[in-house]
Design a protein around this nucleic acid. Structure first.
Length: 178
DNA sequence: GCCAACGTTGGC
DNA sequence: GCCAACGTTGGC
């Protein structure tokens, strides 16, 4: 499984927006060729850091890839694709870019070297570090992921109730309020 | 197919 | 608001 960082300008699409609609959304509007190439390699259940650019400049939560790349109808050239993502959890504490830049252990994070790229690969080291800083328990995430992998994402959504029932240890995730 | 000029992104 | 770093466009 791979990890990613997805950037968004909160004025256009924020974590609060993501949390609505059962936390599910299309990640459309990506036009950059390199970002498209990276998105193409995303797999179902890959986990992504949800990053606010602009004034905020901080990682605020985690989303999971629900559907791999498919055509983005908002692209007139019909060449660009998009993925579907679903909210996994919010960070207990947002992790700022300034904070990350001070971390000696993740100096080679691609986010620093290519600040304009809106889809950034995240190494395991960086993933663990950022989740730790955000107050998120990674083992809790792998439980969700492993379970989801057994069924396709579509099935998971459809069979949500039965999944909940059949899993003794299942921890109920926070439903989006608002 | 090169490259200058221009546009865009996003950190500072 | 500025500017560095890219990306894109279009003339040649």
């Amino acid at each position: 499984m791979s990890h990613w960082l997805l950037k968004t300008e909160p004025a256009e699409w924020s974590w609060e927006n993501q949390a609505s609609n059962s936390g599910v959304s299309k990640w459309d509007g990506v036009r950059n060729a390199q970002a498209q190439k990276l998105m193409r390699t995303m797999n179902v259940d890959d986990l992504c850091l949800f990053y606010h650019t602009g004034k905020a400049k901080e990682v605020v939560g985690i989303v999971r890839v629900l559907k791999t790349l498919y055509p983005d109808p908002s692209d007139a050239s019909e060449k660009c694709g998009m993925v579907d993502v679903k909210e996994v959890c919010a960070f207990k504490v947002p992790v700022t870019l300034a904070q990350l830049k001070q971390e000696e252990s993740i100096k080679d994070f691609m986010l620093f070297r290519q600040p304009r790229l809106s889809v950034v690969p995240v190494s395991q080291d960086v993933w663990e570090k950022i989740c730790e800083l955000g107050g998120v328990d990674i083992s809790d995430l792998s439980e969700v992921s492993t379970k989801a992998t057994r069924k396709s994402a579509a099935e998971e959504v459809a069979a949500k109730g039965s999944l909940d029932k059949s899993s003794k240890k299942h921890k109920r995730r926070k439903r989006n309020a608002s």
